[in-house]
């Protein structure tokens, strides 16, 4: 019952099977959304902490942040996942933690994508015009205050498109958390595969992930419009609702269209 022809022949029955399994699939969607949401949130926090840490004057802080970023960027997400799931519990007290599967997924996704995000944050901070730093200096504002009041609000608008991409990648990367016994969307699709065939099951999976990614894009587009408006580039969010629905992979919202 596989193959393109099988796909069309079996379309009706397959949709029925999918309908019958919908409660479990929706549970999977819920787990995937939770992993992507909390993993994304953790990644955001890590991005900012380690991105900013790489810009401070103190050399030791910069080096520690650098090592962290290199480690989590340079080692495989799958291996990190297995470490958290299978090696961590075997470590001697007090490190022998057996974490819940969702916590493992969130932690691994957050650490891995946070390391990438830290580079985005660092780069965006460096992209804020030099004149802004000089104005802060000329007003004798402290570097910490300047960073949080002036530099980061401007860097935020610059970094959102890249963070948005990372978040979508994190969502898609979350499919591998099923390997540590997390019953996410991918796991549920696998469950129906032998009943519906690979064509149908994986086509459904594509669409499902695409739709979740779209939600992320809408959220990030809204944040971007708002951030740009706040630094005087582009219309208010309330004036640009129509542009938010652009699908994932579409052009970044509000680029060059104004000023």
């Amino acid at each position: 019952m596989d193959g393109v022809i099988g796909f069309f022949e079996q379309l009706g029955p397959n949709i029925e099977i999918l309908g019958a399994r919908m409660p479990q699939i929706l549970e999977g969607v819920q787990v995937t959304v939770l992993a992507a949401a909390f993993g994304g949130l953790l990644a955001l926090v890590i991005s900012f902490v380690f991105g900013i840490a790489q810009t401070v004057k103190l050399g030791a802080v910069r080096i520690i942040a650098r090592i962290f970023v290199e480690f989590f960027r340079g080692t495989s997400l799958v291996v990190q996942l297995f470490w958290l799931a299978f090696v961590l519990p075997q470590l001697p007290y007090p490190f022998g933690w057996q974490l819940a599967p969702l916590a493992i997924g969130v932690l691994a996704l957050g650490l891995n994508y946070g390391a990438y995000g830290a580079e985005v944050v660092r780069g965006s901070i460096g992209s804020v015009p030099k004149g802004q730093y000089e104005a802060l200096s000329a007003l004798s504002l402290s570097p910490v205050r300047g960073m949080f009041r002036v530099i980061i609000p401007q860097a935020w608008a610059l970094m959102i498109p890249s963070l948005s991409n990372l978040w979508i990648q994190l969502l898609k990367g979350s499919a591998i958390v099923s390997t540590v016994l997390l019953y996410d969307l991918y796991f549920r699709v696998e469950q129906v595969r032998d009943q519906t065939g690979t064509w149908f099951a994986f086509l459904f999976a594509l669409v499902a992930y695409y739709l979740v990614a779209w939600v992320i894009v809408i959220i990030m587009n809204a944040l971007e419009v708002r951030a740009k408006h706040k630094i005087g580039r582009g219309p208010a969010l309330s004036d640009s609702l129509g542009t938010l629905l652009r699908p994932p992979g579409g052009k970044n919202v509000a680029r060059g269209a104004m000023v």
Partner: peptide, 10 residues
Amino acid sequence: FQHFNLFPNM
């Protein structure tokens, strides 16, 4: 400054 360098977020 030549280019004003006002803070655009304020």
